[in-house]
Amino acid sequence: ETQAGIKEEIRRQEFLLNSLHRDLQGGIKDLSKEERLWEVQRILTALKRKLR
């Protein structure tokens, strides 16, 4: 995994995270989306740690 590859994956995950946040802010309670949001946040945290 290169730095560029990790950064690209971070961009993808952040896009997905923002999309999930928008969907959930629409007021629709969706447990699967909430679980996915937490999963994406965990992935992002792990990726950012790899960059250090």
Rank of each mutant, 00 (worst) to 15 (best):
19 S>R: 07
38 W>K: 14
9 E>D: 05
28 I>C: 12
21 H>G: 05
4 A>S: 08
44 L>E: 00
14 E>H: 08
31 L>A: 13
43 I>N: 07
34 E>S: 08
41 Q>H: 07
34 E>V: 14
37 L>I: 14
15 F>L: 14
27 G>D: 07
37 L>W: 07
9 E>L: 12
2 T>E: 11
47 L>M: 12
26 G>C: 13
29 K>I: 11
13 Q>P: 02
14 E>Q: 08
39 E>D: 05
11 R>A: 10
10 I>V: 02
44 L>S: 00
7 K>R: 14
51 L>M: 04
18 N>R: 12
14 E>P: 00
25 Q>A: 13
43 I>D: 03
9 E>M: 10
10 I>M: 02
6 I>Y: 02
16 L>G: 00
1 E>M: 11
31 L>V: 13
35 E>S: 07
22 R>C: 14
5 G>N: 10
40 V>K: 01
26 G>L: 12
10 I>S: 01
25 Q>D: 08
40 V>C: 04
26 G>K: 11
49 R>K: 12
22 R>I: 09
44 L>H: 00
24 L>F: 04
31 L>G: 06
19 S>L: 13
40 V>N: 01
50 K>F: 05
37 L>Y: 15
15 F>E: 15
42 R>M: 08
12 R>F: 07
20 L>Q: 00
34 E>L: 15
35 E>M: 12
48 K>R: 13
6 I>K: 01
21 H>N: 09
15 F>S: 15
24 L>R: 02
26 G>V: 07
28 I>T: 08
42 R>D: 05
32 S>H: 10
40 V>S: 01
36 R>C: 06
41 Q>L: 15
25 Q>V: 14
22 R>T: 07
8 E>K: 08
34 E>Q: 14
21 H>K: 15
8 E>R: 10
33 K>C: 11
42 R>W: 05
39 E>C: 06
25 Q>G: 04
15 F>T: 14
40 V>F: 04
39 E>I: 04
20 L>Y: 02
38 W>L: 14
46 A>F: 06
16 L>V: 05
49 R>A: 14
3 Q>A: 12
18 N>G: 05
29 K>Y: 13
43 I>C: 06
25 Q>M: 12
16 L>Y: 05
3 Q>L: 15
6 I>R: 00
41 Q>T: 10
23 D>V: 06
35 E>C: 14
20 L>R: 00
5 G>T: 12
38 W>G: 07
33 K>F: 10
16 L>E: 07
28 I>Q: 08
17 L>I: 06
27 G>I: 06
50 K>L: 13
48 K>T: 03
10 I>K: 01
33 K>A: 08
47 L>A: 00
37 L>E: 02
39 E>R: 03
45 T>R: 12
32 S>M: 12
20 L>E: 00
13 Q>S: 02
47 L>D: 00
5 G>I: 12
33 K>N: 05
45 T>I: 13
13 Q>C: 15
38 W>Y: 10
47 L>G: 00
18 N>K: 12
3 Q>V: 15
7 K>M: 14
50 K>D: 03
45 T>N: 12
30 D>Y: 02
6 I>Q: 01
28 I>Y: 07
30 D>T: 03
30 D>E: 04
32 S>Y: 10
38 W>A: 14
22 R>S: 08
48 K>P: 00
7 K>D: 03
2 T>H: 07
38 W>T: 09
34 E>A: 08
36 R>H: 07
28 I>P: 11
11 R>I: 06
14 E>F: 04
49 R>F: 05
48 K>L: 10
43 I>W: 03
1 E>P: 05
15 F>C: 15
36 R>M: 13
14 E>K: 04
31 L>T: 14
36 R>S: 07
37 L>V: 06
35 E>L: 09
35 E>T: 09
37 L>S: 09
44 L>C: 02
12 R>E: 04
17 L>A: 05
13 Q>A: 13
31 L>E: 12
48 K>V: 05
49 R>C: 13
47 L>T: 00
35 E>W: 06
25 Q>R: 08
11 R>Y: 04
35 E>Y: 11
9 E>T: 03
52 R>C: 12
27 G>Y: 04
33 K>L: 15
17 L>D: 02
18 N>T: 08
51 L>P: 00
24 L>A: 04
28 I>V: 15
16 L>P: 02
38 W>I: 14
31 L>S: 12
22 R>W: 05
7 K>L: 14
50 K>P: 00
39 E>L: 04
52 R>I: 13
26 G>D: 10
30 D>M: 02
8 E>S: 06
28 I>D: 11
50 K>Q: 13
31 L>H: 12
43 I>H: 06
39 E>Y: 03
23 D>A: 12
1 E>F: 09
47 L>S: 00
30 D>H: 04
26 G>T: 13
16 L>T: 02
15 F>R: 14
38 W>R: 14
19 S>M: 14
50 K>H: 03
39 E>G: 02
15 F>D: 15
11 R>Q: 06
4 A>N: 07
45 T>A: 14
7 K>V: 11
18 N>I: 13
51 L>T: 01
1 E>L: 11
35 E>R: 13
14 E>D: 02
25 Q>E: 13
16 L>H: 02
45 T>Q: 14
5 G>E: 14
31 L>F: 09
9 E>W: 06
30 D>I: 03
2 T>K: 09
7 K>Y: 11
2 T>C: 15
51 L>S: 01
4 A>G: 06
20 L>T: 01
17 L>R: 06
13 Q>T: 11
36 R>K: 11
27 G>L: 07
41 Q>W: 14
5 G>H: 12
31 L>P: 14
6 I>C: 12
47 L>K: 00
36 R>G: 03
